[in-house]
């Protein structure tokens, strides 16, 4: 409950902050004017800024943050390893390659988004096919396959950067891989929102089963759980979540790793409580970071720079607090 309040407050403050300053009262009035008959005490520029610029962007930031956070939490539970992030199976590196290819082919913003999504999904598909080829379905094999695919994609990425025109294309690739929500508009949000909401809802619905998966494959099986099916659904949902958020914002590090830790510290490892908390925290954190990104300096700061600058020391702080519990 408190967290919902925090998320709402962060979002409201975020709407107010920016090049065009507004008071919280005005913002709240503008928001409610859509549903309540309120006297108009603001000018239409303000209304435009709220509905056209800031609200979509905050929505996007919240979606991206919570999507990354719950897919990170899912992976950490599933692979019995709190050091795992949503990139584990290669989704981010694949998305980078897809986006870079689209940039080199000059396909425009929508092309880059589609390229990133396809690249991410393709990379994970290759990763989960590998253990099937070797006929070994253990999660270790899956993780190793992820390492192989991730490394391979990084090399392709290096090659693409090497051949890119350093003046224009390379700059765009680098900027994209650092993540930004500056180019988000209502159209792209509407395009990915259904997928994010469905995948997120499925993970939320099966979150108790994630507890069982975290016991390990054999124990889960003796508790009557079809491990391959359950893990498969969780991987598909997490991949969709990450790929969709990468579509919107480019790659953003740290959120999927750090936020689940914070959630676990607040309410414990039980996913029935931890996953909703992680969702809210991830969303609020991303809105906060994105607000900093657009207000700290005159130019937009890439998001990964900020998530790294905040996330890394924060992670250290979490480790200090938890040091008794980590072997």
């Amino acid at each position: 409950m408190i967290l919902i309040l925090v998320a709402v407050v962060v979002s409201l403050v975020s709407i107010c902050a920016g090049r065009y300053d507004m008071s919280i009262i005005d913002v709240i009035k503008i928001l409610f004017s859509k549903v309540l008959p309120l006297e108009k005490t603001w000018d239409s520029t303000m209304e435009n800024v709220v509905f056209r610029l800031r609200l979509p962007r905050i929505l996007a930031a919240f979606m991206v943050g919570s999507a990354l956070a719950i897919s990170g939490a899912t992976y950490q539970g599933m692979f019995k390893n709190p050091l795992v992030s949503p990139d584990l199976l290669g989704v981010s590196s694949g998305a980078c390659v897809g986006a870079a290819l689209a940039i080199l082919a000059h396909l425009g913003t929508i092309g880059i988004q589609i390229g990133a999504f396809l690249g991410g999904v393709l990379a994970v598909t290759i990763t989960i096919t590998m253990p099937k080829l070797i006929k070994n379905n253990s999660s270790i094999m899956l993780v190793l396959a992820g390492v192989i695919v991730g490394g391979f994609m990084s090399s392709i990425m290096g090659l693409l950067k090497y051949v890119a025109d350093p003046e224009t294309e390379l700059a765009e690739i680098v900027y994209w891989t650092l993540g930004s929500l500056a180019k988000v508009d209502k159209g792209s949000i509407a395009a990915v929102a259904p997928a994010i909401i469905i995948a997120g809802a499925v993970l939320m619905a099966m979150r108790w089963k994630l507890n069982i998966l975290s016991l390990g494959e054999n124990e889960a099986r003796t508790l009557g759980t079809n491990v391959n099916l359950t893990r498969g659904i969780a991987i598909v949902c997490s991949t969709v979540l990450t790929a969709c958020s990468v579509c919107l914002s480019g790659t953003i590090g740290w959120v999927g790793l750090v936020v689940p830790h914070l959630g676990r510290m607040l309410v414990g490892p039980d996913n029935t409580k931890m996953l909703p908390v992680t969702l809210l925290l991830g969303g609020a954190f991303m809105v906060f970071v994105d607000t900093l990104a657009r207000t700290l300096t005159g130019a937009e700061l890439p998001l990964s720079i900020l998530t790294g600058l905040i996330g890394a020391p924060f992670y250290f702080w979490l480790l200090v607090k938890q040091r008794m519990n980590i072997q």
Partner: peptide, 20 residues
Amino acid sequence: IPVYGFNVRDFVVMGRAPYM
């Protein structure tokens, strides 16, 4: 020793999984 420190109650209730 498992990775995550579930509460004993939350751990024991996982025995209900075959019925859910």
